[in-house]
Simulated scan of single mutants.
Amino acid sequence: MMTHPIKLIVIAFCVVQGAGAMAQTLSRDEYRAGRDALAADYKAAKAHCASLSGNANDICRAEAAGKAKIARAELDLRDNPSRQARYTLGVARAEAAYGVAQQRCDDRAGNARDVCVKEAKAARITARAEARAQLTTGDANDLADEKAATAHQEASSTANQARREANIDKREAQYSVAREKCDVYAGEAKQHCLERAKAALGQP
């Protein structure tokens, strides 16, 4: 019996699609092997850090821990490609950078250290806000795809709100840094510095 050509095309398409989907994920053995390799790398990195002392040791350990978290998030993304996994990776990168920055700030003193810490926190807030906005926007678009035009309008509104909230978080973080920098001044000079910061960042 002859098989209809259209059926053959459909079957071939499904096979290709299935192969593509499988290529995007890992087998259990591959995932376990990847996890074991990450654990070995982290152990080796910590051993290297043990040869250092003082704040260099702290920075090294923060870098090792951050890289391990990022690598694990990347492995999870390969194993299960999804928007949530990409968000988790974005957060891991933000936290890793923040952890290292905190330790590097310890090499400074006084206002320079305070500013460094504020800048590290601002960078962390900005990165997390951006990751959250992308996640919220993507989820809203997915919901809209399942519904009618009205849902698309709602999705657009949700995405815009997510962006507005992210921008507010960023400006507040930047203002926190600016205020810390103004602490090097006193009296009227400090007041002018704060007023300029408020005006530049739209703070009340």
Rank of each mutant, 00 (worst) to 15 (best):
K7R: 14
L8K: 10
V10G: 05
V10E: 07
V10H: 07
A12S: 11
F13A: 15
F13Y: 10
C14K: 05
V15T: 11
V15I: 15
V16D: 07
A19R: 10
G20D: 12
G20N: 14
A21K: 14
T25C: 09
T25N: 10
L26P: 05
S27L: 09
R28W: 02
A33E: 13
G34V: 02
R35V: 08
D36Y: 09
A37H: 00
A37F: 04
A39T: 15
A39V: 11
K43L: 13
H48M: 13
H48Q: 15
C49N: 11
S51N: 11
G54A: 11
N55W: 06
N57E: 15
D58Q: 14
I59N: 03
G66Q: 00
G66K: 02
K67W: 09
I70Y: 01
I70S: 09
I70K: 00
A71Y: 04
R72F: 03
R72L: 12
D76P: 02
D76Q: 03
L77N: 08
N80P: 00
S82M: 02
S82T: 09
S82G: 06
L89Q: 01
L89M: 01
G90T: 07
G90C: 08
A92S: 07
A92C: 09
E95P: 07
E95I: 01
E95V: 04
E95D: 15
A97Y: 00
V100E: 08
V100Q: 04
Q103E: 14
Q103H: 12
C105P: 04
C105Y: 02
C105H: 05
R108A: 14
G110M: 09
G110H: 05
R113D: 00
C116M: 08
C116Q: 04
C116E: 01
C116L: 10
K121Y: 06
A122K: 01
A122Y: 00
R124Y: 13
R128M: 12
R128Q: 12
A131I: 03
A131P: 08
A133K: 05
A133L: 01
A133V: 08
T137A: 11
T137F: 03
D139N: 12
D139Q: 15
N141S: 13
D142K: 13
D145P: 04
K147L: 13
A148G: 02
A151L: 10
A151V: 08
Q153A: 15
Q153S: 12
E154S: 14
S157V: 14
T158H: 01
T158I: 11
T158D: 07
A159Y: 03
N160V: 03
A162S: 04
R163M: 12
R163G: 08
R163Q: 12
E165P: 04
I168W: 03
D169Y: 02
K170H: 09
E172L: 09
E172Q: 13
E172I: 05
A173G: 07
A173C: 09
Q174G: 06
S176L: 00
V177L: 06
A178N: 00
E180T: 13
E180I: 01
K181L: 04
C182S: 04
V184P: 02
A186T: 12
A186C: 03
G187I: 03
E188P: 00
A189S: 12
Q191L: 15
H192R: 11
L194R: 03
E195Y: 00
E195R: 10
R196F: 00
R196W: 05
A197W: 06
A197Q: 06
K198L: 08
A199W: 10
A199C: 01
L201Q: 05
G202K: 12
Q203S: 10
Q203L: 13
